[in-house]
Each structure stands twice: as structure tokens, then as C-alpha cells.
Design a protein around this nucleic acid. Structure first.
Lengths: 137, 137
DNA sequence: TAAATTCCGATAAAAATAATCGTATTTTTG
DNA sequence: CAAAAATACGATTATTTTTATCGGAATTTA
């Protein structure tokens, strides 16, 4: 609960890797290899990020992925949205008006939404660059 | 992703219900009925909260549950812990030292922990009483 | 002793997440 | 042009987590 998916976790690592190697196009294979991530899964994920405009891809032999903008300009929120991760802590927090079939008046909806907003703010204010050690122990 | 489990959701509702009816012991059956929650599931959840010291139970015919302390003194963090919900956003954030088998040096562990702490703070600073509308629309 | 209840372990069902597979398409290069 | 290296994409499977259910035991009250 309240956990980042592997998708998001791998994407953070991959974006950071691409950022470090931004002079060239990076193949999914290389990234997966270097970071020991499952190739197929990563590959699909990168395609999604490409479709969502966070990466550009090049097809063919010299193909691979490049960043569109710097990782200091990509927020975790943006990444989660791109990967279709809903950050709604309860179902009714993202527009399900039937949420309150349980009780006549949903007693907790509004305060839960506030909780939601606080969490969203954290993800909104954290960039992929923020999630990187500057110190290599 | 980043979602409260039904356990936590139901527990919030149940604790609020019990708080409103604190003059008597409340049976799992009644709470489930009034809130339209699945009895077996709720029942087990209340037993857990009892074991963790958030509720006291009384066996037998006039049995049921009562609060040990006021819901304004129970934080969401406490509830999640009681329900064995780990609020760790990544596996390595709760003591899995093997987390970094992927890369020699885990580049993101420390900043992820910071993110984790921010999220924890929210749950630490929100009580079950806070999650209740004072206005009934 | 019967009824209402908590208590408890086991299991099943459903949903979400993660991973895999096969194949098509594109591009480069020899 | 043909082969190789890569992305693109749909379908499917496997795994894990979450949610729900079941059966019966123990406890208390009346």
C-alpha cells in the first residue's frame, strides 16, 4: 500500500540513466542490461513514455531513446500520469460519483480529498533529478 | 497505486462509527450493516485492531467493540501499521538490504527515503477524526 | 442450554501488477 | 538488396496482492 509500482521505479532509474548518457541514443537493451531490469517490461514502459512525450525514439539499427527535457523538469506526478498510474488513494477520489452508495452521505470524501491533495503535492514537487543521490558512497 | 486499501478505508469508517456510538459496545454485525460493509472482512479487521490495542472487545452475547482512545488521537499512520499495511513506497524502504542487487550502488535509495518520509508525515499528522466531515451537506 | 457474539485458521475469488512471447515495422550498413 | 538491430504492438501468461468467504471454536448472557 502506498507504494510505487515497478513501472515507476524502473522508469525513474531508466530516465536517470538516459540523462547520464544524453549524448547518445540509448537502446532499451542497453538500459535493461546496465540496470538489470527485465528487457520486455522496460521496453514497453519506454514506449509508453515515448508516446506520452517524455522520450523520443529512433527506430532501426542505430535506434534508441533520448530525453525530450531534462529530468529536473520531469516530476514524479508527470511520470505516474504518463504510466497510467492513478495516484488516487481511494476510488471515489478520481471522479467516481457512485462512491457513496454505501452510506447516504459520504462522511469522509471531502477530508480524504484533502489528504489526496497533500500527497499529490509531494509528487508534484519532486522531480526525477531530485530522486538521485549526488553523493556516491 | 498510492492507494488506501479497503482495510484502511473500512477501518476509518468503522472507527468513526464506533466513536459516534461510544456509549455502547458496537457489534461487527451492526457496523457492517449500517455502513454496508462486508461482515466477515470487517469482522476480521476489527479483531486485528483489537489485538493491536486500538479497540477493546467483549465476547459473548452482549459483546462488541469499543474504542480505547478517541479517534482524534488515532493517526492514519497508526491505523496503517495496525493493519499491517506497509506504507513503504519501495521494497527497499523498509529494511530490505538486498534492494540494490540491481546496481552496485543504489542511486535512488536515499532520496526515495526522503520522499517516503514526506508521505509518512502526512499520515502521521492526520487523525481519524480529521477524516470526517463536520458539515453534513 | 440456546442464542449472540467474538475469535481464528484456512481457503477461495478477484483484481492488480509484472513479465513474457511472437511478430511486424523501421532503419542502417555491408 | 539482404541481414541485422532496433523499436512497436497486441496478446497472453504468471505472480502477487487484495478482498472476500467459510466453518467451526470459544465466550458470555439470559
Amino acid at each position: 500500500m502506498i507504494k510505487l509500482s515497478k513501472k515507476v521505479e524502473y522508469a525513474i532509474l531508466a530516465l536517470q540513466y538516459i540523462a547520464e548518457n544524453s549524448s547518445k541514443t540509448n537502446t532499451a537493451k542497453e538500459i535493461a542490461g546496465k540496470l538489470s531490469l527485465p528487457y520486455d517490461f522496460l521496453s514497453k514502459l519506454l514506449q509508453t513514455l515515448m508516446k506520452k512525450g517524455l522520450l523520443v525514439s529512433q527506430l532501426g539499427v542505430k535506434g534508441g531513446y533520448k530525453l525530450v527535457k531534462q529530468i529536473s523538469e520531469i516530476t514524479v506526478e508527470e511520470l505516474m500520469n504518463a504510466l497510467d498510474e492513478r495516484s488516487s488513494i481511494v476510488d471515489c477520489a478520481d471522479g467516481d460519483s457512485n462512491c457513496c452508495s454505501r452510506t447516504e452521505i459520504c462522511d469522509i470524501r471531502s477530508p480524504i480529498m484533502t489528504l489526496q491533495e497533500q500527497i499529490n503535492n509531494i509528487f508534484k514537487n519532486t522531480t526525477i533529478a531530485n530522486l538521485k543521490n549526488n553523493i556516491n558512497i
